[in-house]
Each structure stands twice: as structure tokens, then as C-alpha cells.
């Protein structure tokens, strides 16, 4: 009979964490703290980030590429404290806000230069068609609202550049979409469509979610 194993959503770690918009006071403080890429490099190893994300944050089979970081620093700190999917949580005792700021600086310093495709302009109407035709809906829902098989990606919480990187070399059960299958322009169109979607309403505004 059929294998009904649920597709793991390891890529939920980055693509659309609902927590990324939150900003704690500690995060705000860290945002303005002087960050040291050199310290960050050491912390990146000592804390254990390298185990899943590689020595240069380039990504491995266990963790996505995070150089350059897909989030702004405050969102990154929030996510690291309370991640989703298979990413383990790191309490302030394990890695401080300052250390995360240093790691953030390190990841920015080792990031490859942006490619031309990262500045592409997309077409939302075409992106909507491609979103269905290319099967993105299968895991992420027909409006990108997310499910147990894939996180919410409408609207996306990360940059087009991060999407382009991730889709070409994903981790977990997210399949790879090469340029032979989906062009950068197609992805830019899909991204633009997803960007055009409204954010979800707060749960407090929906009576059925407060019963």
C-alpha cells in the first residue's frame, strides 16, 4: 500500500516562520550592538551551527544556506530562540544575543556577491499561473497559506535572493528545482505573486479560533 509518510518540512525553518516579524527588546538591543565577524566565526563553530549549515554557512544536507542570512538580525534571533521544524532551539545560555549578532555579521561577510537574477522584476499574474502549474500548491496550499507539508509562503518572509538560493539547493524533503525545470524569471514571477497576497488576519479577529 501507499507510503503515507508525511513529507518533512525542514525548509519551514526559513521560508515562512510566523515568528520572524516579532522583535524582542533583546533583539533590538543586539541589532545595534557592535558585531564582530571574527567573533561570529568563532561562535559559529563553538555553538555548533557548522554541523548543519557548513563552515561558511553554505548549507549541507542537514541545514540550509544561511550566508547571507535570510532574515534581518532581530527576526533571526527570535527564530533561533523558538524555531520550527527540525531546527533545535538555542536558549540565551547557549548562544547570547551578542553572539548571534556576531554570527550574523560573519554570515554577511562570507556571503557570495548577489547575482543578477536577484534583482529580477516579476509578473504576479503569470506567477499565480505558475504556482499552480508547477505544483507549488501541493505542499504550500493553493494560496501559499501553508500546511503540515510545507510552511506558509504567501506572502514570503524572505528575500527573492534567498528563495532563489533555497529552491535550487533545498534541504529536507523540499525537492530541488533546477534552472532546467524552473527559470529564475519564473521564480521571480511566483515570488511576486506570493508577495501580492495579503498577510493572514490575526487569530484574535476570528471568533472560531477563540472557542
Amino acid at each position: 500500500m501507499r507510503n503515507l509518510t508525511v513529507l518533512a518540512s525542514a525548509f519551514a525553518l526559513v521560508l515562512a516562520c510566523p515568528l520572524v516579524n516579532a522583535q524582542t527588546p533583546a533583539a533590538k538591543s543586539a541589532d545595534t550592538a557592535a558585531a564582530s565577524a571574527a567573533n561570529g566565526k568563532r561562535a559559529f563553530t563553538s555553538v555548533g551551527c557548522v554541523a548543519c549549515h557548513g563552515a561558511q554557512g553554505q548549507g549541507t544536507a542537514m541545514g540550509i544556506q544561511i550566508a547571507p542570512p535570510p532574515f534581518e538580525l532581530p527576526a533571526l534571533i527570535t527564530y533561533v530562540r523558538q524555531p520550527t521544524g527540525k531546527m533545535p532551539p538555542f536558549a540565551p545560555g547557549a548562544v547570547s544575543d551578542q553572539q548571534l549578532a556576531d554570527i550574523y555579521a560573519f554570515l554577511k561577510s562570507v556571503a557570495p556577491p548577489p547575482s543578477a537574477s536577484e534583482t529580477l522584476t516579476g509578473n504576479a499574474d503569470n506567477g499565480k499561473k505558475l504556482f499552480a502549474a508547477y505544483g507549488c500548491y501541493e505542499c504550500h496550499g493553493r494560496q501559499g497559506a501553508g500546511a503540515s507539508t510545507g510552511p506558509r509562503i504567501g506572502p514570503p518572509a524572505i528575500t527573492l535572493a534567498a528563495v532563489l538560493r533555497y529552491v535550487r539547493a533545498p534541504t529536507g524533503q523540499m525537492p530541488p528545482y533546477t534552472t532546467k525545470v524552473v527559470s529564475d524569471q519564473d521564480l521571480a514571477d511566483i515570488y511576486t505573486y506570493l508577495k501580492s497576497l495579503p498577510p493572514p488576519p490575526p487569530a484574535s479577529s476570528i471568533p472560531l479560533l477563540n472557542q
Binding site: R152, L208, L209
Partner: peptide, 28 residues
């Protein structure tokens, strides 16, 4: 629990109907 409710709000009015919405309608 609050995080679950916030996630359930995503696609609340979508068609086809979200499984979170359907589950909430049944529960009500």
C-alpha cells in the same frame, strides 16, 4: 497554542477551503 491559532488564520477565507477552517467549523 496561540501559535497554532495564528497559523490556522492563514488562508482562512480561501477557496478551496482550508483544512484549518473546516476543522474549526466542525468544532464549533
Amino acid at each position: 497554542m496561540q501559535a497554532q491559532r495564528e497559523t490556522a488564520a492563514s488562508g482562512w477565507d480561501a477557496t478551496p477551503i482550508s483544512t484549518a477552517r473546516m476543522s474549526s467549523e466542525i468544532w464549533a
